[in-house]
Simulated scan of single mutants.
Amino acid sequence: MSHHNVSMSVNVAAGGIAGVTEILIMYPLDVVKTRAQLYAGKTNNPGIVGTVSEIVKANGVKGLYRGILPPILMEAPKRAVKFTANAFFKKHFTGSDGVLSQTGAVLSGSCAGITEAFVVVPFELVKIRLQAKENLGLYKNTSDALTKIIKQEGIMTLYTGLESTMWRNATWNGGYFGLIHAVKSAMPKPNSEGQRMFQDFVAGFLSGTFGTMLNTPFDVAKTRIQNQLPGTVHKYNWTLPALAKIYSEEGVKALYKGFVPKVLRLGPGGGVLLLVFNFAVRFMSPESAKH
């Protein structure tokens, strides 16, 4: 939960630390999630264990971290924007009585997610191109992928999927920060640092899981949109038509492809994110611990 009484620089630093920590721990599940979302049609995907085995067999353990550089480069600004923007919008949605309503918490989170989308889209596109199984021979590494995408498709290609990313981030952040507000409001005031950290993790875990339940269909559409290569017929363009097409061709279950690895990442990952963020804020700004 963003702190009102700390400086923007502390929010930025704490958000960056929290984001990088979360991705270093949870990243392999993101690779598995992306692979699952790209199984089009009725093709059966091999599941988490099968996908991990397939990746390790083909590329070794390092294959589970393929494409990690864009997220690492993205995580600090992404999480910093997330928490800083959420703190900014919370001030605007707080009532004249100084109380943030549940609706205000959801709206501030959604607005933060939309703001965050503008930062993350280029990194997300490069990451997905690197993670996709069918692209393994196309790009050697992050810099090679970035160079080829710009040279072959134009620099604006890096913003392909912006609209779908806004849908995805608005729903996740709205659900995440909205539920954090509800859960933390229902919890007793912590009487020790250990209890405070436990409450942060539980609130973040539940909220990360809830946000993932809300936004997975938008994430599937985003992944499909961003992995369309030059010289191919682009099947997906805008989010809602893409969702309708996936549903009509593959059924409702396809809208939740990759849900298990995604929720296994973003449930605990949401807990890690909130715990590390709040701990970092209290460490860098001890005064905040009094509020």
Rank of each mutant, 00 (worst) to 15 (best):
M1A: 12
S2C: 05
N5F: 13
N5Q: 15
V6G: 06
V10A: 05
N11E: 12
V12M: 13
G16F: 08
I17D: 14
I17R: 12
G19E: 02
V20H: 05
T21M: 08
E22F: 07
I23Q: 02
Y27M: 08
L29Y: 01
V32M: 02
V32G: 01
Y39R: 07
Y39W: 07
K42N: 14
N44P: 00
N45R: 11
G47W: 02
G50E: 07
T51E: 00
V52K: 01
I55F: 03
K57C: 00
A58D: 11
N59W: 06
N59E: 15
N59K: 05
G63C: 03
G63M: 01
R66A: 05
R66T: 07
G67N: 02
P71K: 05
A76V: 07
K78P: 00
K78S: 06
A80S: 15
T84R: 09
F89W: 06
H92A: 13
T94I: 11
T94A: 11
V106W: 01
L107V: 14
S108H: 04
S108V: 06
A112P: 13
I114V: 14
I114M: 11
E116Q: 13
F118N: 02
V120Y: 02
V120L: 06
F123A: 05
F123I: 03
L125V: 08
K127V: 00
K127G: 02
R129C: 04
L130F: 01
K133S: 11
G137K: 09
L138M: 03
L138V: 02
Y139Q: 03
T147A: 13
T147C: 06
I149E: 01
I149N: 04
I155Y: 13
M156F: 13
T160Y: 04
G161F: 03
T171N: 01
T171C: 04
N173E: 14
N173L: 08
L179Y: 00
H181S: 04
V183R: 09
V183E: 04
P190E: 00
S192M: 09
S192P: 10
E193V: 11
G194N: 08
G194Y: 04
R196Y: 10
F201Y: 13
A203Y: 08
A203V: 08
F205E: 05
L206P: 04
T209S: 14
T212G: 10
F218H: 05
A221G: 10
I225N: 05
N227A: 12
Q228W: 05
V233A: 10
H234V: 10
K235T: 09
K235R: 12
L240S: 07
L240F: 11
Y247N: 10
Y247D: 03
Y247E: 06
E250D: 15
E250Y: 06
V252M: 12
Y256F: 15
K257M: 12
K257S: 15
G258T: 11
G258A: 14
F259Y: 13
K262W: 09
V263Q: 02
L264M: 15
L264E: 12
G267S: 12
G270M: 07
L273E: 06
L274N: 12
N278K: 09
F279W: 15
V281C: 10
V281F: 08
R282T: 07
E287M: 07
E287A: 14
A289T: 03
K290S: 15
